[in-house]
């Protein structure tokens, strides 16, 4: 999957949970879920489950622990779908 396609899919996944529109509109690889998008920590697990469903993958606890930015999510998803 191309990088741009991956970012677009992640962007639509996080959309229901974001609380900072400006950061969302400027979303890039470097955007963080909590710090930038202001996603409430209570919704982080929903983001993880939505990512699992969208890409038909399973994310382990040690991966979930660091999946707090667009870049980290891209790395984890890429490693799973290319495996």
């Amino acid at each position: 999957m191309k990088k741009e396609e991956l970012i677009t899919k992640l962007k639509s996944i996080v959309k229901p949970y974001i609380q900072d529109e400006e950061a969302f509109n400027n979303l890039s690889e470097h955007t963080t879920f909590v710090g930038d998008l202001k996603i409430n920590s209570a919704n982080l697990v929903d983001v993880i489950l939505d990512v699992e469903d969208e890409f038909d993958i399973r994310i382990e606890n040690d991966e979930m622990e660091r999946m707090l930015s667009v870049k980290a999510a891209m790395d984890i998803v890429s490693s799973k779908i290319s495996a």
Binding site: N43, D46, I48, L49, E52
Partner: peptide
């Protein structure tokens, strides 16, 4: 939230 799901609990 997806709180009703088993996968939610497991995570």
């Amino acid at each position: 939230s997806r709180w009703q799901e088993q996968r939610f609990l497991d995570k």
